[in-house]
Amino acid sequence: MSARVISRDRISGFLDCILRKYPLVAPVEEDGVVAYRRVAAAREVALDAGLSDVPPKTHFFPQTEVLFHYSNLSGLEIVEPAGAPETVLFGVRPCDLRGFAALDPVFGGRFKDVYYRDKREKTTVVGLSCTSVLPTCFCRAYGSSPVDGTGADLMFTRLGERYLVEVRTPKGARLVEDCADFFTEDGVREAAREKEVLARELDGRFVRRVDLDSVKEKVDGMFESPYWGKLAQRCLGCGICTFLCPTCHCFDIVDEDRGDRTGCRLRCWDSCMFTDFTLHTSGHNPRATKTERVRNRFLHKLKYHLDRYGLAGCVGCGRCVAKCPVNIDITRVIAEIKEVD
């Protein structure tokens, strides 16, 4: 694995260099909300904004995605959207990198989802280390860390006024080559050492101590537990936790018909918190009450994803903890599960 160093004042030059060749998607701040968007210039990028409010899964798995347009005016015609261009996704934090890893087997496992795979394959993911640990962060519990580059093609770690750039894949190497002028190999060794120090330092800053030990075994037997009912009492049934979760991936397929035999089929994010989430055409709903829906969410995070893919369904980004209007806190849930008889 090769590495480079880039000085902080050259970052925007590097981003503009990318922009000359590829579309660039990066964190942008608007009215205090950080989300990933396509940018037109490096100055739009919120480099130091910390963890985004909306996770970068929006790039691979947009909230609304047109699958195809149809027209049945003279025989059925289907027009699929053009494939994704080669794109650079910049500034992905370690927890969100893990999030992509959790989504990959869903969309690229037994069922290959061309829409997701196409973008995933054509995107170079540039990771960016965290410089601080939020009170809601707990990626450590999942074996990650604020500087962990797993899953990135290129990993940037901020060390004061410069960044250590680790080239982790051929895609990452190509991006470095494309903009080689901005990087130097001088000081890579010291930078790598500094990163280790930083990792240890940041590791000590976690407020939330989350111990996942024996949780999976416990929840395996908790389907009928009255605990879920109690937890669900205060749940409002909104979609904040699922929409902001880097690993949630439920979607719904909708046909929008214009009424003139043309229209399009799209998929939109769905949320297991919504009342109509598993509503059958018959009117029957196997998850009729909040209790079943809340249970489904936590079992998905703590059990089903592990059962299916051997990967945790939670990456410890803490967004749901921070944004839940009624303070349903997965770290508290994990702790409470252990206490349940």
Binding site: D31, Q63, L236, I240, F243, L244, S271, P325
Partner: peptide, 16 residues
């Protein structure tokens, strides 16, 4: 425009 474009339609405003 800017604010509504950002809306996630999570319906938290409605549910609360």
């Amino acid at each position: 425009d800017r604010h509504f474009a950002r809306c996630l339609r999570c319906y938290a405003c409605r549910n609360v």
